[in-house]
Nucleic acid binder design. Structure first.
Lengths: 219, 219, 219, 219
DNA sequence: TATGAATGAGGTTTCATTCAT
DNA sequence: CATGAATGAAACCTCATTCAT
């Protein structure tokens, strides 16, 4: 695990080197936690050397912060791709919930990275100016959909958007965050396509029934 | 005698020593993660010495497994105190959800310990025979309540109990598991008594509206 | 230079281990400066391992501070052995100057350590409570001798003791502190017994002629 | 053009670049010692880049040697400005001593650089042909003054010039070389104008009383 | 000539764990 | 049982130096 030279496939491509390091680091931090991740191991799985990690990110903490930032930035970017136009409020809210569920379950390393950060009380997030000023489009979308639903009389009025987002997030994330213990203790699969599809539907139903004025009892 | 740093109150009390170590260890693992927790630090915060940690728990991993076991055992014990007799299905389900919410939010270190274990893919849990055979009374209670509700015609039929438990857990735990990042990014308090009370109500409402055949639109 | 096990000749002799480390460290710091000294090298020349250095002294800086403290403590102790009773003021002052000269020239590593500390602006000394409260017996002795001389009418009155000590120190130390450059540039020996004896006499003469009311022109 | 961080004032001025690097390097070596000084830091404080350091000075050691050479060269140059004509031997010797004192105390980084070199046993000085053949005019001046004093009967005969120079240097330099530790331990100021003036006088008195045949008891 | 990227060797420190008394 | 001493492996990080453009 010592510093062995790598084929300099990325020679003089700073952005590429940075990205490559971040990808590997995100995975390692997500898999082993902050302290559990090893700089040596990260370097070894990289196209470059350990020295470059310190060159670009100063230290382990800087690397972790950068990984967090990248994760949030990616999420924001993906959220932008969500298109709810042409859908009625209920369908739009379902779509939004499913989208969130799919994103979180499709990017478990992202969920895990956030969780690791929570274990460390968000101290790294506090250090990142970048993350602080991320404009969270998902909230805007949710607000639009909800307001439309209320205006059209299909949603209950008076609900808090942040609160709603929290509910959606909780339902979407738990499946990833507690997969190992929950599936083991209750002996249920949580990562098969079928399980994911079922849970995704439950999550959406739960959100909709919470928001709709008159939920269809069958849904 | 007066110069000894630590009160030797636990001398000749093996069970007390064990418990003391476990309490400290749980907190440290919960606060810093598995790798982040330091055996030296744990020992220092203990009424006893490092030697005893290795004596009772073999190694760091054994200590972590024991801490997990203790956490689950405590939870089971606490669940037993939940008394739903005399309540109608809806009220009972609300009570059960609130109870879960309160427990998780009242024992953040427990939630965090479980999360740490999930980051490590449940590998320690796999090693514990004890945890595997914990009969989870909460599931029994939930099943009883749900069945009663279905029988009485107030709950929708056909729901999966484990799934319902997952929803309840997700809503109860998120408030702890993502407190640091969520509260920081969305600039909302999540640990004040008011915030907890509000969120607790939302969680219960969400569960009830999901289960009830004809939810009262105002709830 | 990696951590190889040493014959545990000093097993379980904490004071011995500490002293052994300090001796080696003092020499290394004095020879290569603070940054130039290598913990690995120090450890290698020790009867114990690198790990023990950190166990006893926390880090490199702690080791340096401890080395400084030990140097000052040793000096103080040696100073105590100086006995001026029975000597007239002039002889006593000469003896005191010669003693200082001999000590500094006999312990070049001590002089160098102090010099290294001065290069670092005394920042480590500032951290040591121990050194701050060293009662400097040499000053007391000097004051006694000087007062006696004044009283007896052989010394000029009105001189400052600290100032006098500074002169003595300057004359005693230069021979060590600037030995390398001075001897090379002026092509003179400064470390042979003859050179030392001559310079020692000059130092004492210089001090005496500065203090005496009527210096014997031949001295 | 306006976006470049550093004013390209030195562009196309090799001698200026060299001088600029040497100034910065001298300060850094003097402040942190040879090993403690950082090439990166030196480069950063320079008007040019790290590349140029290696281009002009080969490596860190070459840079240090060059800094030493520059320091000695500057000193020699400054010494030339000392004009003792028209002064009697005693006054001339006083003036010479004061001049030396002022120079050393006015250029602490020079004193420190020499001290750093002494810590490294003069090994860099040994590598410099330039320094070896510096004709040290101060010695010539001192010899002239002394010889005149002896001829005129005011100075004691038989003193060694190099020895005398050593005494002068010791008294002049100690105030810089041991400022940090001495002032801290004896709680005296050593860098205020008053302290410097007093010490300067003491140094001169000391030298004079050592050399004069019949020192005025009041001086 | 000038700049940021890259390098590898080696530096300091920390960790879980075991030993001696 | 209890305590401080000891251990070695491996962790994180820094340095002087060189390369590519």
């Amino acid at each position: 695990m010592t510093t062995t030279a790598k084929p300099a496939t990325r020679a003089q491509d700073p952005e590429g080197v940075r990205r490559n390091i971040l990808e590997v680091a995100s995975r390692e931090f997500a898999e082993h936690g902050y302290s559990g991740a090893r700089v040596d191991e990260i370097a070894a799985k990289t196209d470059t050397s350990k020295r470059m990690i310190y060159y670009y990110f100063k230290d382990k903490e800087g690397l972790f912060v950068a990984a967090l930032e990248a994760a949030y930035a990616t999420m924001r970017q993906v959220e932008r791709e969500l298109n709810l136009t042409g859908l009625g409020p209920a369908d739009a809210l379902r779509r939004l919930t499913e989208f969130t569920f799919d994103y979180q379950n499709g990017h478990p390393w992202f969920v895990r990275l956030i969780i690791v950060e929570n274990i460390h009380n968000g101290e790294h997030l506090a250090k990142s100016a970048k993350i602080q000023k991320l404009n969270l489009s998902i909230i805007e979308m949710l607000r639009d959909v909800y307001d439309r639903g209320v205006r059209e009389g299909v949603f209950r009025a008076g609900l808090d958007i942040i609160d709603l987002h929290m509910t959606i997030s909780a339902l979407a994330i738990f499946n990833v965050s507690h997969r190992a213990t929950f599936s083991r203790i209750f002996r249920v699969a949580m990562d098969t396509p079928e399980a994911l599809a079922r849970r995704r539907a439950v999550a959406a139903d739960t959100v909709l029934r919470y928001v709709l004025r008159e939920p269809d009892p069958s849904a």
